[in-house]
């Protein structure tokens, strides 16, 4: 027991020194398990996050917007892969993680349980949802676990295009007809609060924060990130000529930040518990896609086995 405590103190000292932890290094079980949970939830979010946007690929208003949306959704698939890869270095298999997701046992970001009702929602997702994701992910590029930090660096490089294409899409609508402006405003009305919830519950209700902060796998608090997001996004909404749906929102000169109204956390917990507008649809879509792809996976495996069995095949 004493030895275990010494070892954990040594581990913490390495983290404090800024040493990156690598897959084959010894690490406390709790560190490993917390990371597996955090990275796999993040991976699942990238994968499920393709669904609300995929819904509009076939209905994009121009060929260029369609190509952009396709490229963005393809990036998200890649992000899922980088993150599953990082989780696998901790000794879990990708298959087991995906099984957990399909069985409804794994969590993913609650934002993806909201529907994309209009084309403007695609702009709002890029601008707000990817914008919030970037804010979360940039500090993680410095996290203590090497494979996770490296995956985040790749992801962050690709994310800024996601946010910009969303803003660009909304800007086109904001400069369009009255009906297009109304569509953009409606999208902001529906996506604003769920986007603020993406940063997670308030710090005082967030039980694991202190340990995760000590381990450098959470580098900024939920409330700190949320404030930064509001401060950065409100002037962008003003540029678009859109109204942020919060009557309590105002600049606080003394704090140097925007004050904003209370968040309806009951809605957040309802969505997390599976009672959001699209939870069931999202899982059904994932399960169907996985089942529909089974024959492709089997065929590829059979082909590979046949190639290996060929006389003269490389050992």
């Amino acid at each position: 027991m004493r030895d275990m405590q010494t070892a954990e103190a040594g581990f913490q000292a390495r983290i404090d020194e800024g040493v990156k932890i690598e897959p084959k290094d010894a690490m406390p079980d709790a560190y490993r398990q917390t990371l597996v949970r955090q990275i796999s939830q993040h991976a699942h979010s990238e994968i499920v996050g393709q669904l609300p946007e995929g819904n509009w690929i076939g209905r994009a208003p121009t060929l260029q917007r369609k190509a952009i949306l396709l490229a963005k959704v393809q990036d998200e698939a890649g992000h899922g892969l980088y993150l599953y890869g990082a989780a696998e270095t901790l000794g879990v298999s990708r298959e087991a993680l995906i099984e957990d997701l399909l069985a409804g046992k794994a969590k993913y970001s609650s934002i993806f349980n909201y529907p994309t009702l209009t084309w403007a929602d695609i702009g709002a997702i890029g601008w707000l949802v990817d914008g919030a994701a970037i804010m979360n992910q940039i500090p993680l590029c410095r996290c203590s676990y090497g494979p996770y930090a490296r995956a985040m660096v790749r992801i962050c490089k690709e994310e800024s295009f996601h946010q910009r294409q969303g803003f660009d899409l909304l800007l086109a609508l904001a400069r369009g007809s009255a009906a297009q402006r109304a569509m953009a405003q409606d999208a902001l009305n529906r996506w604003w609060w769920p986007s603020l919830m993406m940063f997670g519950p308030p710090d005082e209700q967030s039980p694991h924060t202190a340990q995760s902060a000590a381990w450098k796998i959470k580098l900024v608090t939920n409330d700190g990130l949320r404030q930064k997001f509001v401060d950065q996004t409100v002037p962008q909404a003003e540029f678009l000529g859109l109204q942020v749906p919060d009557p309590a929102l105002r600049w606080n000169e003394a704090r140097g930040h925007y004050d904003f109204g209370p968040i309806a956390w009951e809605e957040f917990y309802q969505v997390i518990r599976g009672n959001g507008p699209c939870n069931r649809d999202r899982m059904n879509a994932r399960r169907r896609a996985h089942a529909d792809g089974a024959w492709v996976r089997e065929a590829a495996q059979a082909h590979a086995a046949k190639q290996r069995a060929r006389p003269g095949a490389a050992a």
Partner: peptide, 12 residues
């Protein structure tokens, strides 16, 4: 004395 790491993921 920290738990021994696994060399690699168990091959599913």
């Amino acid at each position: 004395d920290l738990p021994a790491p696994q060399e690699s993921a168990p091959a599913p």
